[in-house]
Design a binder for these strands. Structure first.
Lengths: 340, 340
DNA sequence: CTGTTAGCGCGTTCAC
DNA sequence: GTGAACGCGCTAACAG
């Protein structure tokens, strides 16, 4: 018995209507210039008439190319990663790729689950945040031989490709600057994730023997404006007497902005009494009063670069040993304004 | 000729190793309780041993269920929509669904392209931002009979389901409040998208004959802190003499925050000289000095509700005429702090 | 430039 | 509780 007509129009239906073979229709869609103009017009007319929309799942199964890239971020409700996702999505779209998004919540077990699912969905590439993954994850990834880009860090042993910057060096640069400004006791206030820790390590490295070891305040991941305010409030209460730091390096600009507000409310003069340094150079930083000194990191560019690396890899006609650029250090930049 | 072994392990390979039929393996994965425990253990062992990862594309093609939901936002690098995406992703994940993300850039033509592609990918549901879409888009959507949720607004003629709030009523509530506070000349400063316009319309409706018609300043979409500062700077220069508004209602909290900063820099007292009202109640609002009065909208909840509506629809066993809740008005709330 | 053949890897359906 | 056939809708590979 012939198959009854289903909901949607199929390639076959279009082919019959146009009086050509299925493959010809397929070619009109995927490689138009390999079809004679007359036939092509006939087919295009049939497509328009039927309102045919190709079933990309079927196409993907047959060609084993999904044109989907997976991306896993700790969380998306954070300007920081959102910018990277934006850059990624935009540049991927130009290559005809779509983005499957996952949130790990800073949890490697969740990340691993997502990686497994994404691999099952046969993504053509994967963009990860950071360089610290579970052993299972890296094993899966190497086994699957999927192009992978790690972002937001500069791993020593990358899984595959990288579009990032060195958190350690960024922290070190901040430390160097602050010590040169004469600060003896510096405080670091940020979350506990690996990248934050790398910046703290950099700060400590810059310190060396020149000053006291930085105080470290670790906040819950995702702490934001309110968290920054709280840091100042706590500091003012507990350590005003002798161990008040003269400078604080925050894990992100939102925290620093909150801190600035609390200083404003308490009449603490920035930077005279307390220097404040942010991280990321969000839109807000330049527009605060006083304007926030911070570290500009290539948020958007990491996404764009990741897309670029992936597209290059995916379009490559077997480079036959030719090494592609795999590691992109996009750097960072100290932006010195008023607050430090 | 038998097919040579490909890269990855297939269901068949696992079945052979376990000495059972393919279907048994499939059942172990999808309906474990329909398989005898002994057989199940054998199969699970084989799965573990081979590191088998099911090809979800093939599964989707066969079952015509992709377990993917598409979501289109104007832009993701904006705390506002990012929150919604977060809520959506999280709740979708609990039902085993993943998120395909698209950015329309406030462009309906781009949105339509994305809808077409997503339909081709056979998404099980679609979440859209706003209620204004191209004719082509709504036609596609109705034809495809895909569950759709519109968010961030309360359309009169929804395509299908809705999880949003009324932008018009929100604007009206702000207007009502500000007029009650004695403001005669109010200014609206926001972007030109449809939802922003609805709020302006609400503001105007609240105005009625009680006061002058609000001044409207339309900003480029995505304008943020810097844009807010600019509004104040422009206003101070051009209309200080006679037509200076006594209150400004901004399209989002970032703009309002920027405005607050510019007032701080210029010595304009808020709210005495100028009342400032934000929109969205971002994390930043409560932590500004002075704290920002704003309209709290259910950003995260819209995402969660959209996921809920979709999951309910997708799991439904033919409700046989039973109407499901399709329109969820999640409301909004005036949050009055110090700035207005 | 166009058509034919043979699956992609899995789930549905119905036997047993 | 388990197995066999068939096809989801499309494209790769090779003819012609």
């Amino acid at each position: 018995m012939p198959i009854a007509h289903k909901n949607s129009i199929r390639l076959k239906d279009v082919a019959e209507l146009a009086g050509v073979n299925m493959m010809t229709v397929s070619r009109v869609i995927n490689q138009p210039n390999k079809v004679a103009e007359a036939t092509r017009d006939k087919v295009l007319a049939a497509i328009k008439k039927t309102g045919y929309v190709p079933n990309l799942m079927a196409g993907s199964l047959a060609s084993s190319k999904s044109r989907i890239v997976g991306c896993i971020v700790p969380t998306i409700d954070n300007s920081i990663f959102a910018e990277t996702v934006r850059g990624l999505t935009e540049n991927l779209a130009q290559g005809g790729y779509q983005l499957l998004l996952g949130q790990s919540n800073y949890d490697n077990a969740v990340e691993d689950q997502l990686v497994a699912t994404f691999l099952g969905r046969k993504v053509d590439g994967l963009v990860l945040t950071g360089s610290v993954h579970s052993a299972m994850t890296t094993k899966r990834l190497r086994l699957a031989k999927v192009p992978v880009v790690e972002t937001w860090d500069l791993p020593e042993k990358p899984i595959d490709m990288v579009a990032g910057f060195s958190n350690f060096e960024a922290g070190k640069a901040v430390g160097k600057y602050l010590f040169e400004q004469g600060h003896k006791l510096i405080c670091f206030a940020g979350s506990e994730d690996a990248r934050s820790s790398a910046r703290l390590a950099g700060l400590q490295a810059a310190c060396g023997k020149k000053a006291e070891k930085p105080i470290s305040i670790r906040l819950a991941a995702g702490a934001s404006f309110a968290g920054g305010r709280q840091v100042i409030a706590d500091l003012a209460q507990t350590s005003l007497q002798k161990h008040m730091p003269s400078a604080i390096f925050f894990g992100n600009d939102a925290l620093a902005a909150g801190a600035l507000m609390e200083c404003l409310a308490r009449g603490i003069k920035v930077p005279e009494q307390l220097a404040i340094m942010g991280f990321a150079d969000l839109d807000i930083a330049a527009n605060l009063e006083p304007a926030l000194s911070t570290v500009r990191v290539p948020t958007r560019q990491m996404g764009q670069a990741a897309a670029g690396l992936l597209l290059a890899r995916l379009s490559t006609e077997r480079p036959a040993g030719k090494a592609l650029v795999k590691i992109q250090d996009l750097g960072f930049e100290l932006v010195l304004r008023k607050s430090a």
